[in-house]
Amino acid sequence: MIHIDLTDQPIDVPAALRSVEADGAGAINTFIGTVRNKSTGRPVVRLEYEAYDSMALHQLRKVAEQAAEQWPMVENITVIHRKGTLHIGDVAVVVAVSTPHRAESFVACQYIIDTLKQVVTIWKKEFYEDGDVWVAAHP
């Protein structure tokens, strides 16, 4: 089962982990992306995430479906991404994958977060003491 969400509310990480529990799962692998206090050495004050909601949800689901297709033993996948204003230490994204054995849970989880970063229509703006930058916008 695949569960996808894009929310402007804080992510309930324990609930996200519980959502992938399954009797047939011997492994639950989780990636939690959090807001770091520095970007290329520059202190970060806060982040703002903007999303093209309908496409982001559609693409997130596609990425999760690709993982479930590539590793058919996957029991459950949950992907939740924040939008709006986030501060240092806040959770920006959670990926949780349950599988019968651990090896596939690691690779499927990594595939999902790596692919999410390449295709999902979410944009991060970093705010510093003295300015702001859309991450990855310019070469």
């Binding site: 991404h81 970063k117 295709v119 944009w123 859309w134 991450v135 990855a136």
Partner: peptide, 12 residues
């Protein structure tokens, strides 16, 4: 069509 311009994404 629903058309959108997609600059470099930076989620995660």
């Amino acid at each position: 069509d629903e058309i959108a311009l997609i600059p470099p994404v930076s989620g995660g």
